[in-house]
């Protein structure tokens, strides 16, 4: 019985629901749409409950870190403080704001969003610019003919995409467009087709219960 609930039942459910959604794709009847809408509601509800699990997991992880005084447990305190500050301010903002939404301009939550979240997140993203430069410097080497071609293509595209490149030589943009539209696109299409086929194959393996690694593998 235990194996039924652990193995057979999930596979059976995966098969039934997977097939329903697959068949639905070919059926234009209103019933097909109703089924789909119903499924989507379930997905949203399940995701809602999973969010609670996620938050509990986060708090539990950091609580254990603090309890066991693991290295860097001070950061766990920071996590707790940040989490509850944002939560409390959000709740208060929601209850005192005029629309009942904590997102309204002028609330504490909105202030924290604009003045903490926005700059912090933008900073994270902006680090990308620095990392691109250092990664290019460190790893882009003409080690073999393929790498050399990649290198030349990268330089041409980078120069072709900015006004300075145009100012240096008027044909950079044309070359860059050609690389993007012809070479890049055909390569991407090849990968995309391979990925598409792999995805269909994997979907079939999961539907028919052949692939069970996601349930911890084995039989």
């Amino acid at each position: 019985m235990a194996t039924f609930f652990r193995k057979q039942l999930p596979i059976l459910l995966a098969f039934v629901f997977g097939m329903t959604m697959l068949i639905r794709y070919y059926v234009p009847h209103p019933i097909s749409e109703q089924i789909y809408n119903e499924f989507i509601k379930w997905v949203i509800i399940i995701a809602g409950f999973a969010a609670i699990l996620g938050i509990l997991s986060l708090l539990h992880y950091h609580w254990n870190k603090i309890k066991r005084r693991q290295p860097g447990y001070g950061f766990s305190f920071v996590t707790y403080i940040a989490f509850f500050t944002m939560l409390v301010v959000g709740l208060i903002s929601g209850s005192i704001s005029e629309t009942g939404s904590p997102l309204e301009a002028g609330t504490g939550f909105h202030w924290m969003y604009i003045n903490l979240m926005v700059p912090m997140q933008s900073t994270m993203f902006a680090i990308l610019g620095f990392f691109v430069a250092s990664a290019a410097f460190r790893a882009f080497r003409a080690r073999n003919p393929e790498a050399t071609l990649l290198l030349i293509a990268a330089i041409l595209v980078m120069l072709g995409r900015v006004p300075l490149g145009e100012a240096i030589w008027g044909s950079f943009p044309t070359i860059s467009d050609w690389i993007l539209n012809v070479l890049n696109m055909s390569g991407q299409r090849g990968i995309l087709l391979g990925v598409g086929l792999s995805q269909i194959a994997m979907a079939l393996r999961i539907l028919f219960g052949i692939e069970r690694t996601y349930m911890g593998g084995g039989d």
Binding site: L151, M158, V162
Partner: peptide, 16 residues
């Protein structure tokens, strides 16, 4: 952006 692209290109060229 122009200048940074140029810096990256120069970094690649000189590193090579």
């Amino acid at each position: 952006q122009s200048v940074v692209h140029l810096i990256v290109v120069l970094a690649i060229i000189f590193a090579n």
